[in-house]
């Protein structure tokens, strides 16, 4: 297949050079150190696959993987919601569209540590708003942030809340690429709005939906700050609610077992890589025009 000669290389060179130095190189170093017993302040001895052998026998790996998957699944529920909301916002002639956009975007701008404080108040088991609201409809809410499982759900609710704004602006940009003439034609054919949503909006938006899905999965697998901020560092359910990256952080920066942490990082890398590769495979089935 004939290429475009030197041009593509000129286009990608600055980015690829920067990424290589500042990102590939650290990843390669990490890959190397995952095979060593790496001292806290540097220095190492070769350890072969010892870190990986220990890791695959460590229940914490499977526990944190399970928590991460649960979290990711809940945050992914935000994507259909975002698609629906973005299409509503795109309705021609909709008044206050700008205001709505700002409202949905607010959580994405808010500073995580400040917002975590607010959410802790909302989730508080004895005095929280959420449990007050649930009590009204006769549900006895759990101690959200101090019950294993419920804690993951609580963090995921915040994750969904804060990522919705991002998904919506990406999808809004995608919607601008759909020619209004298509809706007009459908209108002429007497298609209902729901029908238009299903047969025009969603199919033509699939590249953006695909993009948002990939990014959401990747960033959900990176769950760390939010978990830490909402549960708090001395929370007794933290060991049962930890995410993969929290597991990595705990081993590398708290327990100072850096070689082991490097191995965890490589496993996280592998897991996300596989999940992403599967998504790219599957996209051929549902993404249009790619």
């Amino acid at each position: 297949m004939a290429g475009d000669g030197i041009w593509p290389w000129l286009f990608i060179a600055p980015l690829v050079a920067g990424i290589s130095v500042f990102y590939f190189w650290p990843v390669l170093q990490t890959a190397f150190y995952s095979l060593t017993d790496w001292g806290v302040f540097g220095g190492w001895t070769f350890a072969g696959f010892a870190n990986y052998v220990t890791l695959f026998a460590d229940p914490a790996l499977y526990l944190s993987l399970g928590n991460t998957l649960l979290y990711t699944a809940i945050v992914l529920l935000g994507i259909p919601i975002a698609v629906y909301l973005a299409s509503l916002l795109n309705l021609p002639g909709l008044r206050f569209a700008g205001l709505y956009r700002v409202l949905f975007f607010l959580p994405y701008v808010a500073m995580p540590t400040a917002v975590a404080m607010v959410w802790r108040v909302i989730f508080n088991g004895d005095f929280g708003l959420l449990n007050h609201a649930l009590a009204i409809v006769g549900i006895d809410g759990p101690y959200w942030i101090s019950t294993p499982g419920a804690a993951t759900v609580a963090v995921a609710i915040v994750g969904l809340w804060s990522s919705l704004g991002f998904s919506m602006i990406v999808l809004a940009a995608g919607l601008k690429n759909i020619p209004p003439e298509m809706y007009e034609a459908a209108e002429l054919d007497g298609a209902t709005r729901w029908r238009q949503f299903r047969s025009i909006t969603v199919p033509l938006l699939t590249p953006s939906i695909f993009f948002v899905t990939i990014i959401t999965v990747i960033s959900s697998f990176q769950l760390f700050d939010l978990l830490y901020a909402i549960l708090g560092s001395s929370n007794p359910v933290l060991p049962k609610s930890m995410s993969l990256v929290y597991f990595f952080y705990r081993e590398g920066f708290v327990n100072n077992d850096k070689g082991y942490a490097a191995a965890i990082a490589m496993v996280i890398f592998l897991i996300i890589g596989i999940v992403t590769a599967i998504q790219f495979r599957l996209q051929k089935r549902w993404v249009q025009g790619d």
């Binding site: 290429g3 041009w7 990843v27 697998f221 990256v245 990595f248 990082a265 996280i268």
Partner: peptide, 22 residues
């Protein structure tokens, strides 16, 4: 654009998203 190694390079660029930022 078409060029040799495009898919591989793209995958490599994307792969750096998959490592914990720490």
């Amino acid at each position: 654009m078409r060029f040799r190694g495009r898919g591989l390079l793209l995958a490599l660029v994307l792969s750096i998203l998959m490592v914990p930022s720490q």
